[in-house]
């Protein structure tokens, strides 16, 4: 028995060292691999972002690696960062599942010479060179409040249906909405509740139903998340309330096309082009890797079909820098038809 254990131990050590010997070598020359670390798998928004990233990397003849973690968690992303660093990639663009949690992992990567930027949802300034921001959060806040103002006719109750209570993007946008609401222009507009649908269909639906039951005078629901806005629109449509309650927010055209029709629940909504976000991230990463830009304010670089881009102070005010894609894009009944098949 004891002997056997000893033998086993010896075999184990030999096998391990053999396999390691077999694996020696490799590495050396400068890498041409550009990695995109997405938020989660099976999400069309993320897929489109990856598509744009690949397009950009193909333009400068790099090799694109795209990773989608199985779960939308920081833990999965940390493991994937290790894998990417082991492969010796030139740069990583990450759409973070957590603002702070990736910091040690990304710093470790930076130490090994990997250039790190974030896109879509940022990591903290200490762990990134710069951030590719899809749209100015202040502009998003203003647009959404303005939409609520418009759809309620200037006064009345409205509610927000968000993703999870810890989603940093959504929280920033809601924060900016609240700031905008302080303007006396919106004095008659009452934000009654911020509900969280956790980006789950069933929970978003029951939260919307609860809003309808609790606030019978509700005039508008603003959902700054793709699952939430579709769920809210579905509930409003099913309950025949399209004439009394309007839905708006940030949504995928393909998901919302059903409700953005004449007499539908959602007259208009906003988003940006995720393909462009990914595309810009690809070129930004290239500029960082080639050291044409270092992520300092005022750095300028060429971003393919998007033209010249400039690094600016982060609009979120976190003290870091960012590259801003532009203002949120408005989808309405006129243009939804052409966009619904794009993403």
């Amino acid at each position: 028995m004891k002997n056997l254990k000893r033998v086993l131990a010896i075999v184990m050590v030999t096998a391990l060292s053999l396999s390691i010997l077999a694996a020696c070598g490799g590495g050396g020359k400068k890498s041409n691999d550009y990695a995109l670390l997405s938020k989660s798998t099976g999400n069309p928004y993320m897929e489109k972002q990856a598509e744009g990233f690949k397009e950009a990397v193909a333009e400068f003849e790099g090799n694109a690696i795209v990773k989608f973690p199985a779960n939308p968690t920081a833990e999965d992303q940390i493991a994937m960062i290790t894998e990417l660093v082991s492969q010796g990639v030139a740069g990583i663009a990450v759409a973070a599942n957590d603002y702070d949690a990736l910091e040690p992992a990304l710093k470790e990567a930076t130490k090994k010479g990997v250039k790190v930027i974030s896109l879509d949802s940022s990591v903290n300034p200490a762990s990134r060179l710069t951030h590719v921001n899809q749209a100015d959060p202040v502009a998003i806040g203003v647009s959404l409040v303005e939409a609520a103002f418009d759809l309620t006719g200037g006064s009345g109750q409205f509610a927000i249906l968000s993703a999870t209570s810890t989603a940093s993007n959504q929280n920033t946008w809601i924060e900016n909405m609240k700031k905008t609401l302080e303007d006396p222009k919106y004095a008659d507009l009452e934000l009654v509740k911020v509900a969280y649908g956790d980006d789950l269909r069933d929970k978003s639906v029951s939260e919307t139903e609860a809003l309808l039951q609790t606030y019978p005078d509700l005039k508008c629901i603003v959902a700054p998340t793709t699952v939430g806005i579709a769920a809210a629109a579905k509930v409003i449509t099913d309950n025949g309330l399209v004439d009394t309650i309007a839905v708006t927010g940030l949504g995928l055209p393909s998901e919302m096309a059903e409700y953005m029709v004449e007499g539908g629940a959602c007259p208009y909504m906003f988003l940006w082009n995720p393909i462009d976000v990914g595309y810009l991230a690809g070129h930004t990463l290239k500029a960082m890797v080639d050291e044409k830009a270092t992520g300092k304010v005022g750095d300028k670089f060429e971003a393919g079909r998007l033209g010249s881009m400039e690094v600016v102070d982060a609009t979120s005010g976190d003290g870091g820098t960012e590259v801003l894609l532009g203002d949120p894009f408005k989808f309405d009944l006129d243009n939804i038809g052409e966009w619904k098949s794009v993403y």
Binding site: L16, S19, I20, A22, A23, G25, G26, A79, S86, G88
Partner: peptide, 24 residues
Amino acid sequence: VNVFNAIISPYYNFTGILGATRDF
């Protein structure tokens, strides 16, 4: 698993494995 990994990836080496243990 070890041999298989070593065959499919040139980056699978001892330092890498040690580093990866941190993740799981």
